[in-house]
Design a protein around this nucleic acid. Structure first.
Length: 225
DNA sequence: ACCCAGGGTCATA
DNA sequence: TATGACCATGGG
């Protein structure tokens, strides 16, 4: 396994500047652990505002529940999920997840499992990849798992902390090792990175042109201190 | 009209 | 192992 060491001070410094700029984010939006996990699936490559509509559709249909979701005809479920995009795929993925969730004994049973077993089980669910699993582990199960997403990779790369082509697991372990086991810190850090991306993901009048994807040189320069 | 979103799977080489 | 195609709506 490739080792990667991250400078803890710079990592914490970045978090502190983000926190000072954007304030506490109070993540994850959602009223229950199950709702958080549903949101984690639905937000795959999708803007959160669109996910909210799909979740609202589920709630109004009385279907924000694993058994109810499994009972819905796939076409009906896809219809409810339509605003979140990829609705056919996500309908399948949600059903796979709900089947696993109930088969595993539901929340009360799952919450007793240790983090490594939970993570492996989540990754075995069709449609749940590393980021989705880690969203669930951190924000629903409140386990010390650092979430790596495209924003994190881009920002860290542009901060000169990483090269950017590291594998997911390498980055995750490096962040966890540098920051120590801290659920609240992981929670806030990832939420702040998303807040930063949302605030500056597109060129603005006060931004120089963005040389890397949807990154913003203005924001990164400010955060560099 | 274009770009892209809080990814993951599958086929191909 | 490593790219590429594919999924699909809706906001900027």
């Amino acid at each position: 396994m490739t080792e990667l060491r991250l400078p803890a001070k710079r990592l914490r410094g970045l978090h502190d500047r983000l926190l000072a700029r954007y304030g506490p984010q109070h993540w994850w939006p959602g009223d229950s652990a199950f709702e958080i996990m549903v949101g984690a699936v639905l937000t795959q490559n999708t803007a959160w505002t669109h996910v909210e509509r799909a979740i609202d559709n589920l709630r109004r249909a009385g279907a924000l529940d694993p058994a109810r979701i499994l009972q819905l005809p796939s076409e009906r479920l896809a219809e409810l999920l339509r605003p979140s995009g990829y609705f056919n795929i996500k309908a399948r993925r949600l059903k796979h997840f709900c089947a696993w969730y109930l088969d595993a004994g539901g929340w009360d049973a799952l919450r007793e499992r240790d983090t490594q077993a939970l993570r492996a089980a989540l990754l075995a669910v069709h449609g749940v990849g590393p980021e989705t699993a880690d969203d669930m582990l951190l924000y629903a199960f409140e386990r010390p798992v650092f979430v790596i997403d495209a924003y994190t990779r881009r920002l860290f790369a542009r901060q000169g902390l990483i090269s950017g082509d590291e594998g997911y697991e390498v980055l995750r372990r490096a962040c966890e090792q540098a920051l120590g086991e801290d659920v609240a810190l992981y929670n806030e850090f990832h939420a702040l990175i998303v807040a930063h991306a949302k605030a500056h993901c597109r060129p603005r009048p006060d931004c120089a042109a963005c040389p890397v994807g949807s990154g913003c040189s203005y924001a990164d320069r400010v955060l560099a201190g």
